[in-house]
Each structure stands twice: as C-alpha cells, then as structure tokens.
Design a binder for these strands. Structure first.
Lengths: 194, 194
DNA sequence: ATATTGTTTAACATTTTTGTTAAACGCCAA
DNA sequence: TTGGCGTTTAACAAAAATGTTAAACAATAT
C-alpha cells in the first residue's frame, strides 16, 4: 500500500532523464545514474527490477511527454497561426531543457526492434489537413504537408541537438547559444508562415 | 610493411560505420560489429588494439568525411547559389546513406569530455560572410547568418535522423520516404533562397 | 622446400556491468 | 515498546563485454 514515499523512485527517473535527455549521454550505465542521483545502485533494481525496464519506462514517459505537448497544442480551440506559435513556443522551451528526448526515443528504437507504439496518427492527420487548408488560403507556401511538418520539427529540434557542435563552430558561449535558441522561436515562425 | 592486405581492417571499419551511421545502433558492442562483418572478434583488437581506439577512429573519419564534403563545396569557384545547390545535393545524398554520422560524432562527444577538434572555423566564417553578402543583395531573407546556417543543416539533417518516427507517423514505406527525401533537395533550396 | 611474416582463430583472463540476497535501518501503528 | 513493513545498504553472484596469448594458417620470398 505504498505508505512511505521517500521520492527516491522519482529521483531516479528524473536523474535518468537529465542524463539521457539533457546531457545526451546515451551510454550511461545504471551505476552512472545511481551516482548522479546520489543513491545506491541496488535501488534501481529495487524500484525497477532491471535496467531494461527502467530504460523502457523512461522512453515510454518521453513519448508520453511529447504526446502531451502535441495534444495540448493540437486540441486547443485556436486558429492555425496561434497553434503554430504555441507549438513553437512550447516545443522550444521543452527542447531547451530536454534537447535529446526525441533522440533518446529514436536510439532506443534502434536498439531493440521495437515497433513504434504510436496512435497519434489521427491527430497528425488533422494537423496535416489544417496545413493543407492554410496552403490553399496562401498563408503558407504550397508543398507536401508532410514536408511542411518535417521542416517545422527540423527547424526546432536540430539546432538543440547539435548544440555542442555549433558552439564550437560559432565559438560562442552557452549563454549566447541560448539567446540564439530564444530568437529562433520568432525566426522559425516567420520562415514558414508568411 | 603491410604486404598482405586482406581488406579485413577496412571491412571492420566499413561495418562499424554501417552499424553506427546507417542503422544508428550506438549501443553496438565489438561482438555485434564482428558478427556483422563476419569476422572473429579478436581481429578488432588485432587491427585496432581496443574498442575505444576503433570507435574514436570511426568518429575521427566521420568528422573528416563531413569536413571533406564541406571543403569541396566551400572551396568551389562557383557562385553562392550554386554552392548552396551543391551543398544540399551532396549533403542529402551522403545523408541518405549515413543519416546518423553527425549524430554519432555528437554522441561520442557526450561520452567522454572530448574537446571538439575543429579548425574549420575560418572556412565557416567565410561562408557566413557570403551569407551576409547575399542577404544584402536580397537573395535570402535577412537574419543572423548563424541562424541561416542552422536552418540549412536542420532542414537537411533532421528528417533523415527521424526517419523511423516519421515513417510510423505518416504511415509510409521506406521507398516513399526516400522519395520525400529526394524531393526535399529542391524544397529546401526554395525555402531558404528566394 | 622452407623460413618468414602477416593474418586468423580458439581458449583463456580480466574488467565492467548487471542482478540477487540477506541483513540493517527507520518510521508508524497496534 | 515492539512488531511490521517499506526502504536502504553491503556483500555476493552472474552475466556481458573487452582484452590477451599462443598456436594454426596461408601467402610470399629466399
């Protein structure tokens, strides 16, 4: 009956997420995570039984978090333009905290031959229809709506992922990089919506 | 004096690259690679001494390959517009073969605290200047040239990386996906160059 | 032919990572 | 207070991954 909640289980998951999603350390071991969380490694087994279960649970929650984000935006009763703005704002903010979340999901998919448990296809289809409608109205450049989708997510996600490369290339600090990322919100919108 | 070359060393590296860069299996072990190459695992140690050395060498060559690509494009004596077209064409073609090459480099950077051995900054600065000039001429939308750069690479790289996700979302075959990727070449150019 | 040298293999050893067990700890209720 | 129960720990065990060695093999030069 789970009486005493010391928060350790949550601490472990949060730490795993930080290591995987924020720091992009996909090779982290259970010991790495335990150390980072400041707990005994045995606790990972106590709470999650095995490494695989913990990792899968983290991936599962990552998918759920992304899902929730998209759901909230797509189901909002606002116009397409506002949806786009909201999506960019929300995605970029979460992305700055967890740049490698989607990448973790992808990497874990490649590990096993997990089939993608995605039911979000209907929701996406609605979005694709909205995109088509906007193209008809001339608000966005005409193209395959799927390409529009890929453009949008590419523009948001990739610069976050390639943070360390770009910082070296442009020779800029972490602070400057975050400023660039903030500026991208407006910039991305203006790029895809005329 | 390396008389007898059975091609095994190259086979091992090529196999490692296929597994890492094409299949995105960053968790692959030396045994996985040996199996995929159809050779005894001991040969990895014979040719490369240790796993770390092999992995670092693969990462090193990945950086060199990307470098060579950019060098070839940037040093060409052609106009900016042609450079852009050439860059997109070359990058996308290589990207379709090795979608996870840059991602592997990034992941390996996160593993150790390797400092980025990049000297390409001057070359990039030239490109940034060219971008600025084009903006002055009104050929491309005005913005921070670094943002332009990030847009360009994001549009090219991310859809390749998120292949498996997108295929599930859009419910399309591998063949259809490749068609979309091919179409992107023209599409990306038109998006960033008016 | 045979010695040489680079290549490949199997068996073994080591290290790293993960999993299990039993006991200690600490809070709460009877 | 003490018995129970969830939590935590350390010691141990098992498995997985990596590294080493010596011997077998095969092509070439002498």
């Amino acid at each position: 009956m789970a009486q005493r909640d010391t928060g350790t289980e949550q601490l472990i998951k949060d730490t795993a997420k930080r290591i995987f999603f924020s720091e992009g350390k996909f090779h982290a071991t259970t010991q790495d995570i335990a150390d980072a969380a400041g707990v005994n490694r045995t606790l990972l087994n106590y709470y999650f039984r095995s490494r695989d279960i913990l990792f899968e649970q983290v991936a599962q929650e990552a998918r759920a978090e992304t899902s929730a984000l998209l759901d909230e935006v797509f189901s909002a009763k606002i116009g397409f333009k506002q949806k786009l703005e909201k999506l960019i704002e929300t995605f970029m903010e979460q992305g700055m905290k967890y740049p490698f979340r989607e990448m973790y999901v992808i990497t874990e998919m490649h590990r096993g031959d997990k089939t993608v448990p995605i039911e979000k296809i209907n929701r996406l289809n609605n979005f694709l229809k909205e995109i088509s409608a906007e193209m008809e109205q001339g608000n966005i450049k005409k193209m395959d709506p799927r390409q529009f989708c890929m453009n949008l997510f590419a523009l948001m996600a990739y610069p976050l992922i390639s943070n360390c490369l770009n910082r070296a290339l442009f020779n800029i600090s972490s602070k400057e990089y975050f400023e660039l990322m903030h500026d991208r919100k407006k910039l991305i919108f203006e790029m895809i919506y005329q």
